[in-house]
Structure formats: structure tokens, C-alpha cells
Design a protein around this nucleic acid. Structure first.
Length: 160
DNA sequence: GCCAACGTTGGC
DNA sequence: GCCAACGTTGGC
């Protein structure tokens, strides 16, 4: 199957792109929305992900990640001590899934939500639509390419 | 921190 | 199966 593209949101205060770079790899635990879960279950190793910082100033795409492990049970749902514990999940019926991600590269500049909204070619992206809260979204190949072009032509990001 | 827009839960 | 109450997301 051809490589697929996605957008995944994370609050940088919880898990930022810098955290992913530092750790080199992570499991994407905590998705508790069925639509987002179902999309993760469609992911294949090698798929490319726009890494989006939400509840951030400004919110936007900061880097690229890659799917390195396809969907498997989210074990945090079965851990009573986890923030993501779900008593309705069990080993027999895991209910929630996660994938593993690794960083590919940080973008040359942040592509803000405002910039995404300002590009008419991206008006089909879920992230720019009002009321759209999905934390995992499919992205068309051409949309992915446009976002990378916007990052390359944007102003260099300030050092962190 | 506010709150609109959603999604989920559970009583009936 | 309806829908009110509640919880969450995420821009601002």
C-alpha cells in the first residue's frame, strides 16, 4: 500500500515534539475517542505524520514523525494508576489502541493554524474546520506536501 | 481561564 | 433509543 499521511495533535505541555526527539520513540497512549482510534488502526509502518502542537501559542505543525509500530492495545487503559485508565478496557477486550512514533525531522519553521487556515488549498483539512477536535486526522498527500513547502518558505523558527 | 463545540454516559 | 447531564478538546 502507498504511504499514508496523518496529522496528530499533542499538547506540548504534555508531550512536545522536543520530547519525542529526546526519547527517540514513543507510544501514543491516551487516545480515548473512537474515531481517532479507528484511524490509528489504519496506520501502517512508514506512514508520515504532521506533528501538531495544540493549546499552544501559536498552535501549529512543528515537525514530522513516522509510524514505527502499527496499532496494538493501549496498555495504559488497563492501569488503574494511569491518568488514561478506562475500567471498561480489559486484557480480553482492550478497547483502545496506540501506535509507536519516531521523529523524522523538525520543520524549518512552525506552520501555524492561522497559516493553515489562510491557505485556500488546505481548506479541506480537518484541522482548519470549525468545531473539529479530532486528535488524529487523515491528510491527503498533496496537503502534506503543501505544509512542508510552507514550512520551508516560512520564517526560521526562534530557538527554544 | 473561558467557553463553544463536541462526544459519551446512563436513566428512563 | 432518546436526550439531559456531564466530561473533554482546544482556540482564543
Amino acid at each position: 500500500m502507498a504511504k499514508q499521511f496523518w496529522l496528530m495533535k499533542s499538547e506540548p505541555d504534555v508531550y512536545s515534539y522536543a520530547d519525542l526527539e529526546r526519547e527517540g520513540r514513543t507510544h501514543w497512549e491516551g487516545v480515548r475517542n473512537y474515531q481517532a482510534r479507528n484511524l490509528m488502526r489504519e496506520m501502517k509502518a512508514g506512514d508520515q505524520v504532521l506533528y501538531y502542537h495544540s493549546r499552544s501559542t501559536p498552535p501549529g505543525v512543528v515537525g514530522i514523525a513516522e509510524v514505527v509500530k502499527e496499532a496494538y492495545p493501549d496498555f495504559t487503559a488497563q492501569d488503574p494508576d494511569s491518568h488514561y485508565y478506562d475500567p471498561k478496557s480489559s486484557a480480553e477486550n482492550p478497547r483502545w489502541s496506540m501506535v509507536d512514533l519516531a521523529p523524522v525531522r523538525r520543520l524549518e519553521s512552525l506552520v501555524s493554524l492561522a497559516a493553515l487556515k489562510g491557505n485556500p488549498e488546505l481548506e479541506g483539512m480537518a484541522v482548519v474546520k470549525k468545531g473539529q477536535r479530532l486528535s488524529v486526522q487523515p491528510v491527503r498527500p498533496e496537503e502534506f506536501a503543501i505544509v512542508l513547502e510552507m514550512a520551508a518558505s516560512g520564517s526560521p523558527r526562534a530557538p527554544e
